[in-house]
Amino acid sequence: MSQLMIFGAGYSGKAIAKSLQDTIGRICGTTRSAEHAQKLLSLGISPFIFDGDTLSETLRRELATVTHLVQSIAPGKTGDPLLRICSGDLKSLMPQLQWVAYLSTVGVYGNHDGAWVDEETPCKPVSARSLERVQAEQTWQMASDGADAPLSILRLSGIYGPGRNGFINLEKGTARRLIKPGQVFNRIRVEDIGAATAFLISQNVGGIFNVTDDEPAPPQDVVTFAAKMMGIAPPPEQAFETAELSAMARSFYGENKRVSNRKLRDMGYVFHYPDYRLALRQLWESDSWKDE
């Protein structure tokens, strides 16, 4: 029986589980809290507590029969938590492992002044967190090679969907229209992360894949469109240079690129939400924007 373990079964992890419920025999996921464990259980995901430092005996026993692995936990300064625990020897924990996915970010490409990038573009990360991601990708590739299991690295753009979207920010009054001439971002609906992962499992392939929409767009355009859908006035425009921003928020604007998803498309994957207009319209008209 096929068995999936999702390390870090959060927003993206739950979407992956949902996409695979009909094709994977048993789906498990880790979380840090007992409260979230109950939520996973209600979604048909067998929950296990993982604090990022040690594996319980119960979790170790479960890993012994895992065939498919998704790592969704971000690395820290000390590297990837799972690889640190097993010293990079995945087979020692998961002797039946057949396929691995690592959820990364398009931030690994760094800044390209608005030019297009694809999976062949060399990584030149700007932020410390993106540098950690590049290092994690490399260590996961070595570990997967050692386990003789194909590794799919999913480089994700800005994630949104039910419960996490521009409508929520507008309702809370936290939405902003920051204007930085020439700045664009790609985005991805969380459901496409789940469906793309299921597609890659069905193909049993490894490689690097940009999981991102078709249309890199200025962030203020997305806010304006969402406000129009809600029938409210958008927030006033603010110049990026003079806006008060956290260091992390400002660093996002230091990376300007257009990310291509052609590789996945050429393989036959069809994006459910290829642009923000279609995606936001669906969220609003289905009244599914409020709840995860």
Rank of each mutant, 00 (worst) to 15 (best):
Y11I: 02
G13K: 09
A15Q: 05
A17C: 12
Q21E: 12
G25K: 09
R26E: 13
I27Y: 00
I27P: 00
G29I: 02
A37I: 01
L43S: 11
G44K: 09
P47R: 00
F48S: 13
T58Q: 13
E62Q: 14
L63I: 06
V66T: 15
V70Y: 03
V70P: 12
T78G: 02
D80Q: 06
L82P: 04
R84H: 14
S92T: 13
L93V: 10
Q96M: 13
Q96E: 15
L97M: 11
T105G: 14
V106K: 02
G107N: 04
V108Y: 00
V108R: 01
A115C: 06
E120Q: 13
S127A: 12
L131I: 14
E132M: 12
Q138G: 02
W140G: 05
W140P: 10
S144C: 13
G146C: 04
P150F: 05
I153M: 11
I153Y: 03
L154H: 07
R155C: 06
I159Q: 09
G163S: 07
R164M: 09
R164A: 02
G166A: 06
N169M: 09
G173M: 11
G173K: 07
T174L: 07
A175C: 12
L178E: 12
I179H: 11
I179W: 09
Q183W: 09
V184K: 03
N186S: 14
R187N: 10
E191Y: 04
A195K: 15
T197L: 04
T197R: 04
A198I: 07
A198D: 04
A198E: 08
A198L: 09
L200E: 09
L200I: 12
I201M: 15
S202I: 02
Q203V: 05
G206R: 10
I208K: 01
N210F: 08
D214H: 15
D214K: 06
D221K: 11
V222H: 05
V223I: 15
V223Q: 05
F225G: 06
M229P: 00
P234V: 02
A243S: 15
A243W: 10
M248E: 02
M248L: 14
R250N: 10
Y253G: 07
E255T: 07
D266P: 01
D275Q: 06
Y276S: 03
R277P: 04
L280F: 05
L280E: 04
W284Q: 10
E285S: 14
S288M: 04
K290A: 03
E292N: 04
